[in-house]
Structure formats: structure tokens, C-alpha cells
Design a binder for these strands. Structure first.
Length: 548
RNA sequence: GGCGCGUUGGAGAAGCGGCUUAACUCACCAGCCUUUCACGCUGGCAUCCAGGGGUUCGAAUCCCCUACGCGUCACCA
């Protein structure tokens, strides 16, 4: 078989040769330890936590080493492509502070190693496919989908390994004449790799996260180019990461099984293999079993979930960093105010077993971040979040900025600040009682306080209420009311002899609390009252008395 | 079914043959503080590292087998 002739038949007019491309995309001039990383999402319109997870690794590795981090759009499957998906990718990752040094942008490309959309790299793939044909390492296959399914069924029946290989590779040894005729007739075909791998051989993959792995050598004649001439992931990955000069390929562990294909391709071309980093998957516990986070069942997989719930991007980053490098938490404790970018991220510290996604932990981290965020900044964040997700709240919240700033800062100063705010959706619920438009009575009075007793307490309270008092004076008055009405000023005494009292000061102050905040639980009442102001407090207490 | 990866408390994990009586964080529980809730503090939470065999004076750490979980076996990525 004259492979050159076949190559020319399959790819008659190509502008550039492999050598040309090597020159167009030269080795990068970077320091020896600089890492070149990338993410390659496919534009399905769904961008998820796993994408961010790998993006963070790529970002840290590249940017900590003065390397390059780029975005490549892997749009080789037109069936799954969604209009506007690139914008979705860019804006979602942008929201989380992922920045690319080069790659696809909304209106084109940025960088010298493009195009960064695989759909625009057809000529490049064809050039290298042609090279493989010339080497006798690739051939056209005319099998139809029906024929392949039939083959699979036969393999199942015979209990042999599935796939297109050795004696099952029907079109592997077609002669030139046959091929030329079928092509002339316009028969569709795919281009397959002619593998000389052996099922009994193993290949070594030196994975940066997992160490040395022994994998089965690839023996399948896998597809390089689909019948529309577009490459499969395998071929595109190898060509792109070679020409784009990636040093580290960070991808999820589901790629481990097909890694031998990639190794084989790199070796066939005589190219240097990149360093593979196969990351663990994010899992979820269900019925006692771990399973991969799923797009359909788990809303928390989608990045937009965190946007709409109103998590701070920083919180997601820090959570993911604790998952990725467990020493991050220790670092955070010793460097409480440093930006997380200063944390020395390492591949060596990464775990290789599937990680359960832990919302509790995320919320704890979020709380800690918010407690050290100044009120003015919280105001800005909350404002812009609410404008998009809750315009009603936004209008109310922004009507009086000074007021809202004071609201945010209630009991947040000092050695033991409250950590009430977790994420914006939760925050607006928590803060709602400060605003008359949103104020409602959510809780009942304490159990042993009936509405008559409540009125008694509240009337007395109104009589003595004086906003010139300080906290001490104010609470002394509450104590007086408590005593006068036959409640125990000291809760302990009530607990000891409940029959001697109508209740304790807890019941009295909680009655007032419900009237003013609508809730049984709240931050410090006097502090809240001072923010609400004389008029608002009196109105609420009076309303409570009337409403009984 | 083949091939591969993984398995330390409820969760994330540290651990790399003797410093481990298995760190730290979250969750949970109890107590303290306290006018509620939070915050904070104190203590509890794996007699044991999936199970079973080895190697060794000594194993969570090395080797083998078994179990379980996960991934993958497309003209999807």
C-alpha cells in the first residue's frame, strides 16, 4: 500500500505541513519551571463545579509559576452545542475570578496559539491526520453505525472484548483501489488510528497527582476524525496540547481509562507527553453510597446555583482550596487576612479519592469571610446581587444607605463578632425585620405568655421606654417590669421554683423581642432598637398590643 | 463482562515503618458564658485506619488476596 498516495487522496489540498505548524506555534519562551495549563470546556451551556475545580488548579499552577493559563473551547460535538454557551462559560468563570492569559474571548481570540475553538482548527487536525496516514498509522473506515452495533452484539454473544481491533477491524486492510472507489461514490467514512498495541501490555503513566499508574495499552483502532472531518476529543487533545505547548493537562479522572490512547498518539508523533494530572471527582452521598454529582439531580453542581444563592466567589474559592489542598486551612489560620492567592498551592498535596461536596463546610467558610468583610463592601455586594435576584429587596435596602450600613454592622465589632450572614439569599431573610416593608411577626410569644400577659408587658414597656437611656439603664427598666409583673428577674430562680413566678425575665424580654423583631431570636434588642429608632419601635409595640 | 482507579470517625483530611494514646477543620453532643439566638470557651465524638493473610523486633504506613465503591469500554466530551 502506498500510504503517501492514500494520504493525498484523503487530504488533497492542505496549505501547511506539520513542520509549518511547528514553526507557527513555537516553543514558549518561559522560565524552566513555568507551567502552561488550560481548561477545555465544551459549550453545552452547562458550566459546573467540576469545571471551576479544574480551573482553579490550572489557574494556581500557571500563575504561581509565571506560566500561562488559557481557555480552549472544545466544540467538536455540534449536536451538544448551545448558542451563547461561550458567553456563559466566560461570564460564569469570570464571576468566580478565573482569568485567562490567552484563549477564546466573546468576540474572538486572544493569544498566539489560536484559534482557541476546536471547530476552527480543522486544517490543523487534517494536516496531522494526513501525517498519520502517510506513516501508515491511520486509515479510512466505512462501517456504518448499524454495522458497528451489529458487531458489538456479536462480540457480546461471543464474550470477547468490545470494540474495533485486530480481526474485528474490518476496513483495516482495504486496498487503495477499494478505498478510492468508495470515496468516489461519496460513501461516508471516519478516519481510524491503526493501533499496534497489545491487549496484554501495560503502559506506565506518571500522573502528577496519583503517581505511577499501570494501564492497559491501547489496542483499539479508535476514531481520529469523525465522518464530518471533525476530530474526536482524543485526537484534538493531543494535537492541541502539543501545538499550544501545554505542560500540564489537568482533567477529571474519568479520562484515566482513555489516557493510553493519548499516550499512544503522543508517542506515534514523537512528541513530548504533557504531565497529566487526573483529579478526583466531586461526589455526593445518596442512600449510603457515593456517586458523581449529577447535572440533572443536583442543582448545587451548576455554578449558577452559587450565583443565585448569593455566595461570595471568594467563599467558593476557599472551600475548593480546602478540598484541593488540605493544608490550606492551616495556612488560613496562620494568615487570616492574606488574600488566598498567596497560598502556595501544590499538586503533591492533592488527594486522589473522590470528595464529598460539603455544603456545611462551605457555609462555615462563607461566614468567616463575611465577618471580616467591611460593611460598606457587604452593602455593595448585597446591592448588586439583589438588583439581579431580588429587585424588591434591592429597592428597600438601598433607599437609605446609612441605615442599611448600620443594620449590617449590628454586633459585628469587638472580639466576639456575630456571624449572622452566610450568603445573600439567607442574609436578606435575616435582615428583613429591619425594614417596615418586610417586617412580619414570624414567631409566637413564649409559650407561657398569653396575649393578655403580652399586652401587660408591652404596655409597661412603652411607659418606661426612653431612648435617652443607655443599655444599662434600659435593661434595668426591663428588670423592674419583670419584677413588678411577678416574673423572676433571675432565670435560675425561676428554674428552681417555677411555682413562685409567672415566668422569668426571658419570657418578658422575648415578648418584647417578638413585638419589635417578629422573632424569638435576634441580635441584641437595645442595639436593634436604636437602629430602628424611637418611632418605629413604638409603632411596632403599639401594633402588637392592638393586634393582641 | 474486560480494564483501571479508589477505600483513615458523620464530612474534608493529616499521616510516607518506631515521635500516634491516629493532628487539624466542619458537623454533631454535653457543659460554661448569657435576657433569646448567635459569638466565644471547655470537654466528648475512630481502642483504631474496608476485611483477611503475610514481611518485620515493630505496619494505617510495605506485599498478596477478598469485599465494596467509583470510572470507563461512542463517529460525547
Amino acid at each position: 500500500m502506498d500510504y503517501q498516495k492514500l494520504a493525498d487522496l484523503l487530504f488533497p489540498d492542505l496549505k501547511f505541513s506539520p513542520t509549518d505548524y511547528e514553526q507557527i506555534y513555537p516553543q514558549r519562551q518561559l522560565a524552566a519551571n513555568a507551567k502552561v495549563t488550560r481548561i477545555g470546556p465544551s459549550p453545552t451551556g452547562f458550566i459546573h463545579l467540576g469545571n471551576l475545580y479544574n480551573a482553579i488548579i490550572g489557574d494556581r499552577l500557571a500563575h504561581q509559576s509565571n506560566g500561562v493559563f488559557f481557555l480552549r473551547i472544545e466544540d467538536t460535538d455540534s449536536k451538544r452545542e448551545v448558542a451563547g454557551a461561550v458567553e456563559i462559560i466566560l461570564s460564569a468563570l469570570g464571576f468566580f475570578g478565573i482569568n485567562f492569559d490567552e484563549g477564546a474571548t466573546i468576540d474572538g481570540d486572544n493569544g498566539n496559539y489560536g484559534p482557541y475553538r476546536q471547530s476552527q482548527r480543522k486544517d490543523i487536525y487534517h494536516c496531522f491526520a494526513k501525517q498519520l496516514v502517510k506513516m501508515g498509522k491511520a486509515y479510512p473506515c466505512f462501517c456504518s453505525e448499524e454495522e458497528l452495533t451489529q458487531m458489538r452484539e456479536e462480540q457480546m454473544a461471543k464474550q470477547v472484548n468490545f470494540g474495533y481491533y485486530s480481526e474485528w477491524a474490518r476496513d483495516r486492510n482495504n486496498d487503495y483501489q477499494q478505498i478510492a472507489e468508495r470515496i468516489a461514490k461519496g460513501e461516508p467514512y471516519v478516519l481510524r488510528f491503526r493501533s499496534d498495541g497489545n491487549i496484554d501490555n501495560t503502559v506506565i503513566l506518571a500522573d502528577a497527582i496519583r503517581g505511577e499508574l499501570q494501564l492497559q495499552e491501547n489496542y483499539q483502532d479508535f476514531v481520529l476524525l469523525k465522518s464530518d472531518g471533525i476530530p474526536t476529543y482524543h485526537f484534538a487533545h493531543v494535537v492541541d496540547d502539543h501545538l499550544m505547548r501545554s505542560t500540564h493537562v489537568i482533567r477529571s479522572e474519568e479520562w484515566l481509562a482513555t489516557a493510553p490512547i493519548h499516550l499512544q498518539l503522543f508517542d506515534t508523533f514523537g512528541w513530548q507527553r504533557p504531565i497529566y494530572c487526573h483529579t478526583a471527582q466531586l461526589m455526593k452521598l445518596e442512600d449510603g453510597n457515593r456517586r458523581k454529582l449529577s447535572k440533572r439531580k443536583d442543582p448545587e453542581l451548576a455554578l449558577k446555583y452559587y450565583c443565585s444563592e448569593g455566595y461570595l466567589p471568594e467563599a467558593i474559592w476557599e472551600y475548593l482550596l480546602t478540598v484541593l489542598n488540605s493544608n490550606f486551612e492551616e495556612w488560613r489560620m496562620t494568615n487570616p487576612s492574606d488574600p488566598f492567592e498567596q497560598f502556595p498551592f501544590t499538586i503533591e498535596k492533592m488527594s486522589n479519592s473522590g470528595t464529598l461536596f460539603d455544603l456545611d463546610k462551605l457555609q462555615d467558610i462563607s461566614k468567616e469571610i463575611l465577618v471580616r468583610t467591611p460593611a460598606a463592601q457587604i452593602y455593595d455586594f448585597l446591592k448588586s446581587w439583589a438588583e439581579k435576584y431580588n429587585p424588591t429587596f434591592s429597592d428597600i435596602f438601598c433607599a437609605d444607605k446609612e441605615y442599611s450600613l448600620r443594620v449590617i454592622d449590628v454586633n459585628r465589632s469587638g472580639d466576639r463578632p456575630r456571624k449572622d450572614l452566610v450568603y445573600w439569599k439567607q442574609a436578606i431573610k435575616f435582615l428583613s425585620f429591619y425594614f417596615d416593608e418586610l417586617f412580619t411577626i414570624e414567631d409566637n410569644y413564649p409559650e407561657n405568655i398569653d396575649s393578655d400577659t403580652a399586652c401587660e408587658i408591652l404596655n409597661k414597656y412603652l411607659e418606661t421606654l426612653d431612648f435617652n437611656d443607655d443599655q444599662e439603664q434600659w435593661f434595668n427598666k426591663v428588670r423592674e417590669i419583670t419584677d413588678a409583673l411577678g416574673f423572676a428577674v433571675q432565670p435560675k430562680k425561676y428554674r428552681k421554683n417555677p411555682e413562685l413566678y409567672r415566668g422569668s425575665i426571658i419570657d418578658v424580654s422575648n415578648t418584647i423581642r417578638v413585638a419589635i423583631t417578629g422573632r424569638l431570636n435576634s441580635p441584641d434588642l437595645w442595639e436593634i432598637s436604636n437602629i430602628l429608632g424611637d418611632k418605629r419601635v413604638r409603632n411596632r409595640v403599639q401594633a402588637a398590643i392592638k393586634g393582641k
